[in-house]
């Protein structure tokens, strides 16, 4: 009886994990099975015919899968760089400098935290259309150039940096830029890492905004590409479809498994911090 009580939690957790992980397993299994085994619903891990190469080949040739990944990388990095470049100095000024309108700006930042991008999509889309910028990388990135969340997060983190070190640096002749990037941000590297994960995961996986501003398949980021791909395949070849899905989810899953702590901290910091 005692042994059962001891193992019961593992049993429950194991059953739950089976359901949670089933889609990943099924995705990978189908992606290495031949299309002929499509009616085989067994979960046996070794396919009768090993068709991994064929499926992935088809996923990469039917649609420019590698191009989607590259687009995703460009968009994510572009967004992240501008977000950090604009949020860090603003957060530093809000946390450590005095200027008129400081309180107002902080209030606006917190108010903006509640406004989802989907609510701003319409006017931003109209604006980009008027400027003839639809179907560009810029259009995909522009609405995310300012991350109020990054400003909020860095502001919280920078505030705890000792004022005396900043003053010592001023007396030593550091410029405010050097203090901001070289000293204060260096003291908040865990926040920077967590935010980077948060930002990259969010934009790698985002479908709504690319779907609005991109119609050119060559500019599509992975989720939009996946949508195109499943339309093209329309259920005909599940092996290739699953290979495509595996390719698109792989970068985030691999990064997650490698840096599990950072990922969990980064993605959930909206809640804990």
């Amino acid at each position: 009886m005692a042994r059962v009580r001891q193992f019961l939690p593992h049993l429950v957790l194991g059953a739950g994990a089976f359901i949670v992980l089933l889609p990943f397993y099924w995705m990978f299994l189908t992606s290495i099975r031949s299309p002929a085994e499509i009616f085989d619903v067994s979960l046996w891990p070794i396919p009768k015919q090993f068709d991994m190469a064929v499926n992935y080949e088809r996923a990469a040739s039917q649609v420019p899968m590698m191009r989607f990944m590259l687009n995703g990388l460009i968009v994510c990095l572009g967004i992240l760089i501008v977000q950090v470049a604009t949020a860090v100095p603003a957060a530093y000024a809000l946390a450590k400098l005095n200027f008129p309108g400081r309180k107002l700006l902080l209030t606006l930042v917190i108010a903006a935290l509640c406004v989802p991008i989907q609510a701003l999509a319409l006017p931003l889309f109209v604006g980009l259309a008027k400027l003839d910028l639809l179907n560009t990388y810029f259009a995909m990135m522009a609405p995310f150039f300012l991350s109020v969340f990054a400003i909020f997060l860095f502001h919280q983190s920078f505030r705890s940096y000792p004022d005396e070190i900043i003053e010592a640096a001023r007396m030593d002749g550091f410029s405010e830029m050097e203090i901001c990037w070289g000293l204060v941000l260096r003291g908040s590297l865990p926040s920077l890492a967590a935010f980077s994960v948060f930002s990259v995961v969010a934009h790698w996986n985002d479908l709504y905004w690319p779907m609005i501003v991109v119609t050119d398949i060559n500019l599509a980021p992975p989720p939009l590409g996946m949508l195109f791909f499943s339309d093209v395949e329309s259920g005909a070849n599940y092996g290739a479809l699953m290979a495509g899905a595996a390719l698109i989810t792989a970068p985030m899953i691999v990064c997650f498994l490698l840096a599990r702590r950072h990922f969990i901290a980064g993605i959930t910091m909206t809640g804990v911090k």
Binding site: P222, P223, M226, I248, L257
Partner: peptide, 24 residues
Amino acid sequence: FWEAAYFLPVTATLVAMATVWQFL
């Protein structure tokens, strides 16, 4: 281990995983 297992769907691209669910 349990943390990683249950957290995996959060990181995965939902569009791709929805396609997998469609099949499942």
